[in-house]
Amino acid sequence: MKYCAIASGSNGNCYYIAKGEDAILIDVGINTKHVELRMANLGIDPSRIKAIFITHEHSDHIRGLSVFCKRYQIPVYWTAGTSHGSRLHLPSHLVHIIPANGRTKIGEIYVLGIPKFHDAKEPCSFVVTDGSTNVSIMTDLGRACNNVKHVIQHSDVLLLESNYDEDLLEGGRYSYYLKNRIRNGWGHISNKTSLELFLQHRSSRLKHLILGHLSEQNNTVELVEQTFLPHCESIKFSIATRYQETDMFDVDDILQLQKKGA
């Protein structure tokens, strides 16, 4: 399986996962021009995308959806709550309503919905699997619920939210209302909480940890590296940012490198 983050952060999210000819996107939260440019950098043909799955209706997850799905006539899969909350009027033939805990087959892969706590209408995260490898995209988590813990335990590749540093958030310029919205159990998880989740629930099958959805105002790449890197000696470690796409990763390549280093 191949995968990458096209964008990850509080101002836009978009993730690519593929198995052979079967490729999907999770969220299209940056404008279509930038999606296309970043895809070109990675050698991705947008017309080969077979489906788009949307986690929830916040703008940083759907900003580019309407234009992108219409331009390339790509089916969109989302919950009824997300569809209603988005206020987007997409062509009916492209819209597929799924349950938050649904299981959708796209060619050789299955996309599993993972219900979560977040301040949206009917949000879910997604695990993409070919039956042997699980690629999990876990952002906008709100809190460490049992669903999230279970996914981490069974992930081969985990893109995990590490949204904010607690001290930066507390001392920052955000209003009390916004600070509380972020940390009240329905918003995002901190670097500290993310690390605790990772350390307590990772398993020996985890090959690659990617930290994502970093806050522009309340976090830094350096802080995330300092927090996680000492605990990732045996696995591949990456950080996805808002500024550019990650490399295109291949699970088989990572396995080969780890075997050589063993």
Score class of each variant (00 low, 15 high):
residue 3 Y to W: 11
residue 4 C to S: 14
residue 4 C to H: 04
residue 4 C to V: 11
residue 5 A to N: 13
residue 5 A to V: 01
residue 6 I to Q: 00
residue 6 I to S: 06
residue 6 I to N: 01
residue 6 I to F: 05
residue 7 A to R: 12
residue 7 A to F: 03
residue 7 A to P: 08
residue 7 A to S: 14
residue 7 A to N: 13
residue 7 A to I: 00
residue 8 S to C: 09
residue 8 S to D: 02
residue 8 S to A: 13
residue 9 G to C: 08
residue 10 S to P: 12
residue 10 S to W: 00
residue 10 S to D: 15
residue 10 S to C: 07
residue 11 N to D: 14
residue 11 N to E: 14
residue 11 N to T: 12
residue 11 N to G: 10
residue 12 G to W: 09
residue 13 N to G: 06
residue 13 N to I: 06
residue 13 N to L: 11
residue 13 N to C: 15
residue 13 N to A: 06
residue 14 C to I: 05
residue 14 C to K: 02
residue 15 Y to E: 13
residue 15 Y to L: 11
residue 15 Y to H: 14
residue 16 Y to E: 05
residue 16 Y to H: 05
residue 16 Y to I: 00
residue 17 I to A: 15
residue 17 I to Q: 10
residue 18 A to W: 11
residue 18 A to N: 01
residue 18 A to H: 02
residue 18 A to L: 07
residue 18 A to D: 08
residue 18 A to Y: 03
residue 19 K to C: 12
residue 19 K to Y: 10
residue 19 K to W: 09
residue 20 G to Y: 10
residue 20 G to R: 04
residue 20 G to M: 02
residue 20 G to H: 08
residue 20 G to A: 04
residue 20 G to K: 03
residue 21 E to H: 07
residue 21 E to F: 00
residue 21 E to N: 11
residue 21 E to Q: 13
residue 22 D to M: 02
residue 22 D to T: 02
residue 22 D to H: 13
residue 23 A to I: 04
residue 23 A to S: 15
residue 24 I to Q: 09
residue 26 I to Y: 02
residue 26 I to T: 04
residue 26 I to L: 04
residue 27 D to G: 05
residue 27 D to V: 02
residue 27 D to M: 01
residue 27 D to I: 01
residue 27 D to A: 04
residue 28 V to T: 03
residue 28 V to G: 03
residue 28 V to Y: 07
residue 29 G to Y: 06
residue 29 G to D: 03
residue 29 G to L: 02
residue 29 G to T: 01
residue 30 I to N: 04
residue 30 I to E: 09
residue 30 I to V: 14
residue 30 I to S: 05
residue 30 I to C: 07
residue 31 N to R: 12
residue 31 N to E: 08
residue 32 T to Q: 13
residue 32 T to Y: 07
residue 32 T to E: 13
residue 33 K to Q: 10
residue 33 K to L: 12
residue 33 K to V: 15
residue 34 H to R: 13
residue 34 H to Q: 15
residue 34 H to K: 11
residue 34 H to S: 14
residue 34 H to V: 15
residue 35 V to K: 01
residue 35 V to I: 15
residue 36 E to H: 01
residue 36 E to D: 11
residue 36 E to P: 04
residue 36 E to R: 00
residue 37 L to K: 14
residue 37 L to S: 14
residue 37 L to R: 11
residue 37 L to M: 14
residue 38 R to A: 09
residue 38 R to K: 13
residue 38 R to C: 06
residue 38 R to L: 08
residue 38 R to G: 05
residue 38 R to W: 11
residue 39 M to W: 13
residue 39 M to A: 14
residue 39 M to V: 14
residue 39 M to S: 12
residue 40 A to N: 12
residue 40 A to M: 12
residue 40 A to C: 10
residue 41 N to C: 09
residue 41 N to M: 12
residue 41 N to H: 13
residue 41 N to G: 15
